[in-house]
Design a protein around this nucleic acid. Structure first.
Lengths: 350, 350
DNA sequence: ATGAAAGCGCTAACAA
DNA sequence: TTGTTAGCGCTTTCAT
């Protein structure tokens, strides 16, 4: 077997010196021309640009970055890239970063603190210009993230943040979202509302629980501990939680789940039991996953502005990336949620 | 307002020279120690490592990469990161790359050839060690991808490939998947099966159509052009296609859609029309999106091994990244699909 | 408008 | 075992 042609091609890339040699110029002139420095004769400039193109020149960012002590890469850390929620955000981040001339280096922690620390090291080693991060479920120790800042790399958190660090943050007002949903359910006449809660370690889950509790209290609904079922963020958690609720002597007339996936898991189990949604029991979720519009019945949920999260995160990071005399003060942006009413709630049986 | 402390911190990073100065050693010795070079006294080595840690040293990859003429970054180009299908693959790629010491730089083309070309340039400029790519829907000109190879960067395609380039590829046997589904439908007794096709530009969509046609022919089913509705990959396309099928004098008894999203769009429209799925009309999809298990009825579909795609792509790329005397021959891996039977097909009415 | 020299942080060949 | 020297490709003074 002979080697294929491309494999035999020399890996030596064209440099500004190659261009300079060909044109009988000094490589600094070439460098200037390529970066539109004014001190280059228009004619030379055009010649250099044409030759660069023709020689298939691609600037070596390593060399430029080394020299300039900066890079054009934004590092992103998310818990799970395969999760709809995070991939939407990363997608927006990538587009926005690109618009501003930055590439994106992506890391996922897989909800592991260990992996998260490795990700942080990798991003520091790669001298990324800035980092956008959403922490793992189990991140308590903020030191690793602090080391990003210690390395002089600007850091912005989104969604899941380290409270103790003085950086910009983009968070979602989960409390408000939970309140919206609870008010909606109560308005429809539901009185015995269960909550399938998320992991207690996650601030956003706690906020939702707090919203549930506060609205119950505000409307004088009896607080029944058995109506609050702890769990995780997965559909299975919803199935199991539904089982526990079905076992109650006095069943709830509505279920507010910590997210759509859990709500769907619960709904499936409730329907298996022969209950009609929403006639026998209403079900509501959170997050407005794509999937929630396609369930039967379609799921009432709370929309979390993912695109906005991604856009805003980049926006908050950018000022730190441009060399400036004054470093901007950290900002905390709290984004509003929006109630999305669909058929899974609706008029209660009585 | 005073500046926050971290912002005031010098951006100057610790280098091997700083460590050397502190220990009264030469920086090359430090360099050796940090890379476990044998020619360093154990005692010195330990001292250096401890000091590095203490001084919070992070190797500068720019400098190392510049010197070594290589990087530790794998570039990935996908059409849409927010799409479940691609984000699952990228997730797996990221994990696998990480396992082998590589970081991942992510680019999305947003199905735009222009953006794709920009992505390619960015990856070449960043001197990534290798590229994994899935082309946009409209990529016809293969030159930009060839320029990756011309730059001496190994390239592996997955899912959507450039046929003309002699690189390794990971593809899915969509033809086989379509055949599996059609045989399933025919086995259940359906005889008038419609196909909601994808964009004719996408090879995978054409393969599915071909499978549909071949199986129809093989079983002697009448080929009715009106039963083949062209479209895209979105739910709306399914809704519109369903409308066209409903308008037919002789309606189909089953619908095989190019993917789950389209199938769900169609199903929604069919149910609106008062038709029962699968009693009045069966519906089948393709891809096994997460969502397909949660529709009512759950959707029969064809599983595409995303994790396997990601894993295999990295596996095919890796040998090209390690410096070796012989460059491996390009390999084309064709992954099998798997029929997933759920309730949306089922026994036909008669 | 162009050239010369220096250096970013690192590694590899060679010298001691 | 450690130190010396040179250079990866680029940009930024400073000189011409």
């Amino acid at each position: 077997m002979s080697m294929n042609p491309s494999a035999m091609k020399s890996r030596t890339n064209v440099t500004i010196k190659d261009i300079a040699r060909k044109l009988q110029l000094h490589h600094t002139t070439v460098s200037r021309a390529l970066r539109d420095h004014p001190d280059v004769k228009e004619e030379t400039r055009r010649l250099i640009l044409a030759t660069a193109q023709e020689m298939n020149y691609h600037p070596n960012t390593f060399a430029a970055n080394l020299r300039n002590q900066k890079s054009n890469v934004i590092g992103v850390i998310v818990p799970e890239l395969s999760h709809d929620f995070f991939s939407s955000i990363v997608s927006e981040v990538t587009n926005e970063a690109d618009r501003h001339g930055y590439s994106v280096m992506i890391c996922q922690s897989n909800e592991s603190v260990d992996q998260e620390n490795k990700n942080i090291s990798a991003l520091i080693r790669n001298r990324v210009a800035g980092v956008l991060a959403s922490t793992s479920q189990f991140t308590i120790n903020e030191t690793p993230f602090r080391s990003i800042m210690d390395a002089g790399i600007p850091l912005v958190f989104f969604d899941r943040v380290c409270r103790g660090l003085a950086t910009s943050k983009v968070v979602v007002d989960f409390y408000q979202g939970a309140c919206q949903m609870m008010e909606h359910l109560i308005e429809l006449g539901f009185r015995r509302i269960a909550h399938i809660a998320g992991p207690a370690d996650v601030a956003g889950a706690r906020e939702r629980l707090q919203g549930y509790l506060d609205v119950c209290r505000r409307f004088g609904l009896p607080l029944d501990e058995r109506l609050i079922v702890p769990g995780g963020f997965l559909a299975e958690n919803g199935v199991l939680a539904a089982e526990r609720l079905l076992a109650l002597a006095h069943r709830p007339d509505a279920v507010f789940a910590v997210n759509d996936e859990v709500a769907i898991g619960a709904m499936i189990r409730l329907k298996e039991e022969g209950l009609q949604v929403p006639q026998d029991i209403a079900v509501a979720g959170f997050d407005n996953d794509k999937i929630s519009a396609f369930t039967t019945p379609p799921l009432t949920t709370v929309d979390v502005p993912r695109v906005e999260i991604g856009k805003k995160s980049v926006e908050l990071l950018l000022p730190y990336l441009e060399p400036a005399k004054t470093t901007p003060e950290p900002v905390i942006v709290r984004l509003a949620t929006k109630l999305v009413v669909r058929a899974s709630t609706g008029h209660p049986s009585a």
